[in-house]
C-alpha cells in the first residue's frame, strides 16, 4: 500500500529535522494526523511565524523578533556595557542568563572555527565583533571547551590582544556536585592547572 502523497511529504519534511530518523518521522506524522485539526494548525502557524518573524540582532547576532531594532539584551539599558561575552550559539546566551551571574552584553559567533568543515573566520561574526570593541573594557571568551571552541577562543584572544582589549576565558573545572573520581582526565587536568588561591 502506498501512503497518500501529503503524508509522504510530511514524513519527508519531518525526517529532515536534526535527530529525527525515518521511523521517528513516520511516528510524528501519524501523531499529528491523530491530533485535533486546530492543534496541528496552531503548530503550523507557530512555525510560519517563527520563520517570518525572527531575525538576527544587528549588534550581537542574537535571535530577536523581526519588528525589533535590536534584541532585548542590547536594548536593556541596565546592563554593563563595558563587558562583552562571546558565545557560539544563541542557546549559550540563555544558559548564561539562567546562571544569573552575568549582566553584560553578548556577541554570538554562530559557530566555531572548523577548517575541515569549511568554517573559517569569515564564516563567523568575528569582523562585527572587532567593529564593536570601542568602549569595551573586557571581552569574556565563553566558547565551548571543545578543541574547536578552544581554538576559536585562542584565535580571538590573539586578535583582541593586538587591539589592546583585555580578554578572559571562562574557567575550566569540575561540575558542581560532581565526584572527583568520575571526572574525565582532561577536565580534571584543566581544573588542577587552572586552580585558584583561596
Amino acid at each position: 500500500m502506498k501512503y497518500p502523497s501529503a503524508l509522504v511529504n510530511l514524513i519527508r519534511e519531518l525526517g529532515r529535522l536534526p535527530g529525527i530518523g525515518p521511523k521517528s518521522a513516520q511516528r510524528l506524522a501519524f501523531h499529528l494526523f491523530n491530533q485535533p485539526q486546530e492543534e496541528v494548525l496552531r503548530l503550523a502557524r507557530s512555525i510560519e511565524e517563527a520563520v517570518s518573524g525572527l531575525s538576527r540582532c544587528l549588534n550581537c547576532f542574537n535571535v530577536m523578533s523581526s519588528d525589533q531594532g535590536v534584541c532585548s539584551v542590547c536594548d536593556d539599558t541596565g546592563r554593563d556595557r563595558k563587558t562583552l561575552c562571546v558565545i557560539e550559539q544563541p542557546a549559550d546566551l540563555l544558559a548564561i542568563e539562567r546562571s544569573g551571574e552575568y549582566r553584560g552584553l553578548y556577541h554570538v559567533l554562530h559557530g566555531s572555527l572548523s577548517p575541515m568543515n569549511g568554517v573559517g573566520p569569515d564564516q563567523l561574526t568575528i569582523e562585527s565583533l572587532l567593529e564593536r570593541l570601542s568602549g569595551i573594557g573586557e571581552v569574556i571568551l565563553a566558547t565551548s571547551t571543545t578543541v574547536e571552541g578552544e581554538a576559536t577562543a585562542m584565535y580571538l584572544g590573539k586578535l583582541l590582544a593586538e587591539r589592546g582589549v583585555s580578554a578572559s576565558r571562562i574557567a575550566y573545572g569540575l561540575p558542581v556536585g560532581g565526584d572527583l573520581e568520575y571526572a574525565d582526565e582532561v577536565t580534571l587536568g584543566r581544573a588542577i592547572s587552572h586552580r585558584r588561591p583561596l
Binding site: 575541515m116 578543541v147 578552544e150 584565535y155 574525565d184 582526565e185 587536568g189
Partner: peptide, 25 residues
C-alpha cells in the same frame, strides 16, 4: 583517554592539525 594534545588548539597549529585529519579522512 590515551593522550590529549593540548597545543593543537593554538591558532598557529589548529588549522594544520585540521589539515592532517581531513587528509587522513
Amino acid at each position: 583517554l590515551n593522550g590529549a594534545l593540548p597545543n593543537l588548539s593554538r591558532p598557529e597549529i589548529y588549522p594544520l592539525a585540521n589539515l592532517l585529519a581531513e587528509l587522513a579522512d
